[in-house]
Write a protein that binds this DNA or RNA. Structure first.
Lengths: 242, 242
DNA sequence: CGAACAATTGAACCGATTCAAGATGCGTGG
DNA sequence: CCACGCATCTTGAATCGGTTCAATTGTTCG
């Protein structure tokens, strides 16, 4: 008898919208699986601007898949200053950085109205032993995250950092089926600056220059990439800038 | 009948010397497992200064565990400049950043004479489905790597970066049973500089200042940490600076 | 409409790099 | 064992990129 593979059938997860979607589809599923899945995946919690999903220091129990809107994960250092580790787009998973520890090292906060699925990590882990494809997929996801972090650590000038940030966002939107050249930035300038370790003023000046050079068009939070290739070039794309 | 758990018994891996050691010990093992393990773990390849383990672009097949000496993984960007993504100490695993892709995105090079174990990734993956503890352990390892990268991206001043680098090295040596205050840096100043995105001259000046402030003693490649707490403070240790 | 906040712009400043020597260590061969 | 030569490391002075500070404009919302 085949093991039950509940994750495959969640209404959200099965349709390929999230990072688990790819793996969920091929495994084969039926109606009966639905119920067991509902126990693992808690669909549909909605957050308002600034609401926290979890805070640093809280016990780690769930990982999260973004359904709509955007979330950010924030690190606090010993001096009390905050740093935005990453932004999370619809379909992406977050919270994986806490697996190694029993508590969260970062906090997750909604940028504007946003919703997510919560997945009990222990259940996901168990499931991954039964569904090899899921295990592979999770390894792959984390591996990619490690690789991305490595390339970010190499970035040098502010031009390069901002270009790489925009290129990466573009690629992520594209992967989820959105336009790769037109999207909303969602986050404030200050947040972008914080994330990239720059002054907000610098972001402003760079956006202006990028516009002058006909690389992009930005109006408030709307971004239109005019020359993606040039941006990639600027970012010094480390071989695989997907 | 219990599944065979070969990884548990490799002479190197089983003794807790490497990142897999922790997980290998508890799973329970016997003599018969030894043989199957030998097929997965290719023990004992020795490299000389500058020799490459793998290069960017080569197909990904193995992950590696350092037995002795030190290795570095190097990224090449589109302009042909190199960046050292990380250094790998005895007992540590590397190559996990290539899992998501079919080819290596980085190269691995020996710093001085060094040796390693090669582990066929596909085999490790298979094994992980049979040994839940191994799967957990791998998730945990990668999770920690993600988290570490996040904290590194936050570092601001050169003081902070170098302090954090030394503190991290100290912690890693400690974890492997070496002294946490006295160790060889192995790598050249230029390599440290490259890794931290700084000029070699800056490293020199910082070492001098750290010595003046009685934080460390450095003579060539020998490091003696005099005030680890102060260094941690300087690094702005993000909560868990183990 | 006005208050509060976010983004932009300009000018002064500072940290880190760069460039150019000089010192130190290290292996080689006399 | 010392002298030579190369490579690495150190040190100082000039420069540059990005930040900081301060003031202005723009945007959102009660």
């Amino acid at each position: 008898m085949e093991p039950v593979i509940p994750l495959a059938s969640a209404s959200f997860l099965k349709c390929g919208q999230c990072s688990l979607g790819k793996i969920c589809l091929p495994v084969g599923l039926d109606r009966d699986d639905m119920n067991s899945l509902e126990e693992i995946v808690d669909t549909g919690r909605v957050f308002q601007e600034g609401e926290t999903v979890y805070s640093a220091g809280q016990p780690f129990e769930y990982i999260f898949a973004v359904k709509s809107g955007m979330f950010k994960t924030v690190l606090n250092d010993s001096q009390g200053s905050e740093h935005i580790a990453s932004f999370h787009l619809p379909g992406e998973l977050f919270g994986l950085d806490a697996i190694y520890s029993s508590v969260h090292g970062s906090s997750a906060v909604a940028l504007g109205t946003a919703s997510l699925c919560a997945i009990r990590y222990k259940d996901l882990e168990n499931l991954a032993t039964k569904v090899p494809g899921l295990q592979q997929h999770l390894f792959s996801l984390m591996s990619k995250e490690v690789h991305n972090s490595f390339t970010k650590l190499h970035e040098h000038s502010v031009d390069q950092k901002l270009a790489a940030f925009l290129v990466a966002l573009s690629a992520r939107y594209k992967q989820r089926g959105y336009s790769e050249t037109r999207f909303h930035l969602m986050m404030a300038r200050r947040d972008i600056a914080n994330h990239l370790n720059m002054a907000p003023e610098t972001i402003s000046r760079l956006f202006k220059r990028f516009q002058k050079d006909a690389l992009i068009e930005v109006k408030r939070t709307d971004l239109n990439i005019l020359d993606l290739e040039a941006l990639k070039e600027l970012s010094g794309c480390c071989g695989s800038c997907d």
